[in-house]
Amino acid sequence: MTEPSETPTAPDDGEMAMPSSNGSDARAAARIASAVLADVAIGVTLFHPKPDHVAVLVAAFAGSVRHVFAYDNGGVSAEIRSVLDRSAGVRVIGQGDNVGVGAALNGLAEAASASGARYLMLLDQDGEPSLELALGLKAAMARLSLMLVPPAMVGPIQRPVAGRKTPLYPPRRNVAALKGLDPVEFMATSGSLLDLAAFHSVGPFRADYFIDAIDLEWCFRAWSVGLSCWVDRETPMAQCVGSGVIRARWLPVTIARQPLFRMETYIRNTVYGWRLAHVPRRWKLIQMAYLPLQIALYWAESGYRAAVLGRLLHAAVNGLRGRLGRPAGAA
């Protein structure tokens, strides 16, 4: 995470001017940002968060955005809870049990809708929260609202992080890009701005997926009902997957290093997605070719342990049979 600047800057589209020279200008800038984001709620999913991460979140939005919802998905200490409870505009929801990312996202969307917000910016505790991010995505959403295919979600371009795997979003075919905005098949929910009316049209995120491929499935579902997903190339945010990278020796293939239960869940949900009509056939074929390579690479990293391969293959079988829900090994 990076510390947000004290004085937010506006998008470059000329919609607003953000002064930035002294204390009074900074206060004026904050008031402008607050007005522009009056219909935006912030929703962050917390799972065993670090105090400094929460401090950045509070510094970025508390007092500037009317509604900030923090979903306690487990491991939020009494100290952090106290900080959140004392912060202006911040409301903690959730019961402190790990219900999975999908259920937490749905809880945030429901809370934001009940607050009267039109948009919800989704974050996790490892994102880069800032008013600049929110302002940039709001400006992008305003431009996209004029499209024939209305936007369901717009997210930032991913800034690479050394030693980590950066998500890549394939472009959507047969949809024209705009200046600085690219239509994509799917994107990560973290850092994205969600249109809440579109959310209710598309339906909730799949809670039975628990943690992996939730954003992919939802975005494909959005496209299938005549809505769209976009990446704003002028609004960057560092985003990475896993704790490192596993690289193939002889092929240009890399996967994120992550716990075994996460890899199992990814495999299960990916295979289950092959059963869904709204997931495009071309994407299923790509995954059918790529997933065995990912499995082989993860197995090799484990030292070719038979037990690991067995669990990965069993996860694929669970996907084929539709056995979803909370994975074994989830904290």
Rank of each mutant, 00 (worst) to 15 (best):
A111N: 02
R173V: 13
R143G: 00
E132N: 15
G203S: 15
R164S: 06
A134I: 01
G127C: 14
L148Y: 13
Q158V: 09
D124Q: 15
A140C: 12
P171K: 09
W230D: 03
T166M: 12
V184Y: 01
L144G: 05
V101N: 02
A198W: 08
R159K: 15
D124R: 06
A114I: 07
P170K: 10
K179H: 14
P150E: 07
I157N: 08
L122Q: 03
D212P: 05
A142W: 05
G116W: 15
L181I: 09
L148G: 11
I211C: 02
P160I: 09
A152P: 06
K179F: 15
G102S: 10
V184R: 06
Q158D: 09
M141K: 06
I211V: 00
S190V: 07
M147V: 11
Q158M: 10
L146R: 15
K138N: 12
F220V: 10
W230T: 07
T166K: 11
P183E: 08
D182M: 15
A134K: 08
E128Y: 05
R172L: 13
D215L: 09
Y169M: 13
G163I: 07
A207P: 09
S224I: 00
A104M: 10
L105W: 02
A188W: 03
E217K: 06
R164F: 11
R164C: 05
F199S: 06
V101S: 04
I214Y: 03
V161N: 10
M187F: 11
A109M: 05
G163N: 13
V175C: 10
S201I: 10
G163Q: 10
W223F: 03
P151F: 04
F205R: 04
A188K: 02
I211Y: 07
A104L: 04
A142P: 00
L105A: 04
G127M: 00
L193R: 00
F186K: 01
K165S: 05
G127R: 01
A188G: 02
P129R: 05
Y209S: 00
G163P: 09
A197V: 15
P156M: 11
P170T: 02
S130I: 03
Y209W: 08
W230P: 00
F210H: 07
L193F: 14
R233K: 11
D215E: 15
M141D: 08
R164V: 02
E185T: 03
L123F: 09
L146W: 15
L133T: 02
V175E: 06
G136D: 00
S190Q: 09
N174L: 13
V231Y: 04
H200G: 14
Y169V: 11
G127H: 05
A198R: 05
G191C: 03
L227F: 14
L122E: 04
G136F: 03
C229R: 04
G136P: 05
D195E: 01
P150R: 10
A103N: 06
Y119D: 07
L135A: 10
S224M: 14
K138Y: 13
L144F: 08
A177Y: 13
V149N: 00
L148S: 13
W230L: 06
L196Y: 12
T189P: 02
V149R: 01
V101Q: 04
R118S: 13
V161I: 14
G203F: 15
V231I: 14
F199C: 08
Y209K: 05
P170V: 12
R172A: 11
M121Q: 15
G203M: 14
